[in-house]
Amino acid sequence: MYEILKKRDLTLDTKLFEISAPLIANKAKPGQFIIFRLDEDGERVPLTIAKADKEKGTITIVFQEVGKSTTQLGTLGEGDTLLNLVGPLGRPADIEKLGTVVCIGGGVGIACVFPEIGAMKEAGNEVISIIGARNESLLLFEEEIDEISDEFYITTDDGSKGHHGFVSDVLKRLIDEGRKIDLVMAVGPIIMMKVVSDLTKQYGLKTIVSLNPIMVDGTGMCGSCRVEVGGETKFACVDGPEFDAHQVDFNMLMSRNRRHTKEEDLSMKDYKEHCRCG
């Protein structure tokens, strides 16, 4: 059993948990993820590790309540426990000194790119961070990211904070200004990663994205998470989750991520009826 030590509401539907998991905290590296299961009837759900604290033996996850399992997870509080928590899974991000690295996070993906910003900075890079969300209230980790980044930009779709527009607008401006950029890392909604990838491809600018396909076991056994990268089938759980953006078939990923939509809606409806939570 894995105890929730700290809970913070980051936005209306985005929550942060710090969970006791010493073995995972000991091994976790930026870019890796965990899989949790709530109870005996629960599904296995992957979430990126936002922070790992070896000394305290804790990991931090940030999640948006989008389906039944994440909604139910959000009802838990400090002192509650998860039945299963396994990790760290996936290949860690390649962290090395490259020069200037642009780290982009969109929505809940801001929490996923957060550990990579720190690691890239620590490796001696100049780090430019761009975070974006639909509106100001959905931005995450603003202060923390501002503090560790050499440059920091905010974008919102509605203009409530920072640049009125998308993360890709800021990236394009930097490129157009002739800034020397050695690597772009982007984590967020698939459409955001695709737009960033299409942009950087025009300039031959190496770009890494972190993919979030549907998983079951998370250890390379089932192939639910398969994605096409450079025309080859890869399992995001063991070959990824980070890949060269310019090789990724984003349309297939979008299509595959919709394959249980009907069942997901049914599960949510069933949950709301039974828990009477609204």
């Binding site: 009837d41 079951v216 056994m221 089932c222 997901e264």
Partner: peptide
Amino acid sequence: TRINLMRAYKFPDCDTPIT
């Protein structure tokens, strides 16, 4: 795995779906 380990045949009582 969806059917056996995750008991998708009991969906939605069990959370894992099978389409």
